[in-house]
Simulated scan of single mutants.
Amino acid sequence: MPCYRCGTRQGDPEPGKGSPWRRGVISEHQVLICPACQPAVLAELARCPGCGSAHLIRRLDQVECLDCRLTRDADEDSGLSGAETAPDSDIPDISVMSRSDSAPIRDPGLAAEVARALDRLRGRP
Rank of each mutant, 00 (worst) to 15 (best):
D88N: 13
D107I: 10
A74V: 09
T71H: 07
E113M: 11
P20I: 01
I105C: 10
C34R: 05
D12T: 08
D119E: 14
G52D: 00
A40D: 10
C34G: 04
C6D: 06
I33P: 00
E76F: 09
T71F: 04
A54N: 11
Q62E: 15
C3I: 01
S19H: 04
A40N: 03
L66Y: 02
S89E: 05
G18C: 06
R9P: 02
D93M: 14
R23N: 12
E84C: 04
Q38S: 11
I91F: 09
E84Y: 10
Y4C: 01
R124H: 11
R106V: 13
T71G: 07
H55K: 09
T85C: 13
P108W: 03
R5C: 05
D77V: 05
P20Q: 00
V63M: 04
A115K: 13
T85S: 11
V114F: 08
Q62K: 12
R116M: 14
E44I: 02
S102N: 15
A74C: 10
D73Y: 09
R120I: 08
L110N: 01
L80F: 03
R23M: 11
T85P: 04
G7W: 00
R122V: 07
R47V: 00
R59K: 10
A74Q: 06
I57G: 06
E28G: 03
E64R: 09
R106K: 11
P125R: 12
G11P: 01
C51D: 01
S100R: 15
D90I: 10
R5W: 13
R99T: 03
M1Y: 06
A83D: 03
C37Q: 01
V114K: 11
I105M: 11
T71M: 13
I26A: 02
I33E: 03
